[in-house]
Lab assay of single mutants.
Amino acid sequence: GKMTGIVKWFNADKGFGFITPDDGSKDVFVHFSAIQNDGYKSLDEGQKVSFTIESGAKGPAAGNVTSL
């Protein structure tokens, strides 16, 4: 299901970062391709987001990332 969290950091040049889930679980990798907006796909440190957990090739990653 949907989770919420805070963006820990995001490197716009490399197109990835990490989200710290509100439930205290392990930080989740986020790739820019998972960001659900029409414009420039980037996130800001400290931004609140909702997301799902998808299993990627390198382990769990955030999917369906939407800013709240």
Rank of each mutant, 00 (worst) to 15 (best):
G1T: 10
G1Q: 08
G1L: 08
G1P: 08
K2F: 15
K2V: 15
K2N: 14
M3L: 13
M3Y: 14
M3W: 10
M3T: 10
M3F: 13
T4G: 05
T4L: 11
T4R: 05
T4P: 03
T4A: 06
T4N: 08
G5E: 00
G5S: 00
G5K: 00
I6R: 13
I6E: 06
I6W: 12
I6V: 14
V7P: 00
V7W: 02
V7C: 04
V7A: 02
V7F: 02
V7N: 00
K8P: 01
K8N: 06
K8S: 07
K8H: 09
K8E: 02
W9K: 04
W9R: 04
W9V: 04
W9P: 00
W9A: 03
F10K: 01
F10T: 02
F10W: 13
F10P: 00
F10V: 04
F10I: 03
N11S: 13
N11W: 11
N11P: 02
N11V: 05
N11Y: 09
N11D: 12
A12P: 11
A12R: 15
A12E: 09
A12Y: 11
A12T: 14
A12S: 14
A12F: 10
D13I: 15
K14Y: 09
K14H: 10
K14T: 05
G15W: 03
G15Y: 03
G15L: 03
F16K: 02
F16C: 04
G17F: 01
G17T: 01
G17D: 00
G17Q: 00
G17P: 00
F18H: 03
F18I: 05
F18T: 03
I19Q: 00
I19W: 00
I19C: 01
I19L: 08
I19G: 00
T20H: 10
T20G: 05
T20C: 10
T20S: 13
P21V: 05
P21D: 02
P21N: 04
P21C: 05
P21M: 06
P21G: 03
P21S: 05
D22R: 05
D22P: 03
D22W: 08
D22N: 11
D22M: 10
D22A: 08
D22E: 08
D22L: 10
D23A: 06
D23R: 04
D23E: 09
D23F: 07
D23V: 07
G24Q: 08
G24I: 04
G24V: 03
G24P: 03
S25R: 09
S25M: 09
K26S: 15
K26D: 12
K26Q: 13
K26H: 12
K26F: 10
K26P: 14
K26E: 11
D27V: 06
D27K: 04
V28S: 02
V28Y: 05
V28A: 03
V28L: 13
V28K: 03
V28Q: 02
F29A: 03
F29Y: 10
F29T: 02
F29W: 08
V30M: 06
V30S: 01
V30P: 00
V30A: 03
V30I: 08
H31W: 04
H31I: 04
H31L: 05
H31P: 03
H31M: 04
H31Y: 06
H31K: 03
F32Y: 14
F32C: 06
F32H: 10
F32L: 06
F32I: 11
F32V: 11
F32P: 02
F32R: 13
S33G: 07
S33Q: 07
S33Y: 05
S33N: 08
S33H: 08
S33F: 05
S33I: 05
A34L: 03
A34W: 03
A34F: 04
A34R: 06
A34P: 02
I35H: 03
I35P: 02
I35T: 03
I35L: 10
Q36M: 14
Q36R: 06
Q36G: 09
Q36P: 05
N37R: 10
N37V: 15
D38E: 15
D38W: 09
D38A: 12
D38C: 08
D38M: 11
D38V: 09
G39K: 13
G39C: 07
G39S: 09
G39F: 07
Y40W: 15
Y40K: 14
Y40Q: 13
Y40T: 11
Y40F: 11
K41R: 13
K41T: 09
K41N: 07
K41I: 07
K41D: 07
S42L: 12
S42M: 13
S42C: 08
S42N: 09
S42W: 14
S42H: 15
L43E: 01
L43P: 02
L43D: 01
L43W: 05
L43Q: 01
L43M: 05
D44H: 15
D44F: 15
D44S: 15
D44A: 13
D44Y: 15
D44R: 13
D44G: 15
E45D: 10
E45W: 15
E45G: 12
E45F: 12
E45K: 15
G46Y: 06
G46V: 02
G46K: 05
Q47L: 07
Q47P: 01
Q47W: 08
Q47V: 09
K48E: 07
K48P: 11
V49Y: 02
V49E: 00
V49C: 04
V49S: 01
V49M: 02
V49F: 02
S50A: 12
S50H: 08
S50G: 06
F51Q: 00
F51G: 00
F51E: 00
F51M: 03
F51T: 00
T52C: 05
T52W: 08
T52K: 05
I53H: 05
I53T: 06
I53G: 03
I53F: 08
E54K: 05
E54I: 13
E54M: 11
E54F: 11
E54Q: 10
S55L: 14
S55Q: 14
S55P: 12
S55E: 13
G56Q: 12
G56C: 05
G56T: 15
G56F: 09
G56V: 07
G56S: 14
A57C: 06
A57N: 13
A57V: 13
A57I: 15
K58T: 13
K58W: 15
K58C: 06
G59A: 06
G59E: 04
G59R: 10
P60N: 11
P60W: 07
P60F: 13
P60C: 05
P60K: 13
P60E: 10
A61G: 06
A61F: 15
A61V: 13
A61C: 06
A61L: 13
A62P: 01
A62I: 02
A62W: 01
A62M: 01
A62S: 03
A62C: 04
A62V: 03
A62Y: 01
G63D: 08
G63E: 11
G63S: 14
G63K: 09
G63R: 06
G63I: 12
G63F: 12
N64G: 08
N64H: 10
N64P: 02
N64A: 10
N64I: 08
V65M: 02
T66V: 15
T66G: 05
T66F: 06
T66C: 06
S67N: 12
S67V: 15
S67P: 14
S67H: 13
L68H: 09
L68M: 12
L68V: 12
L68S: 09
L68G: 06
L68Y: 08
L68C: 06
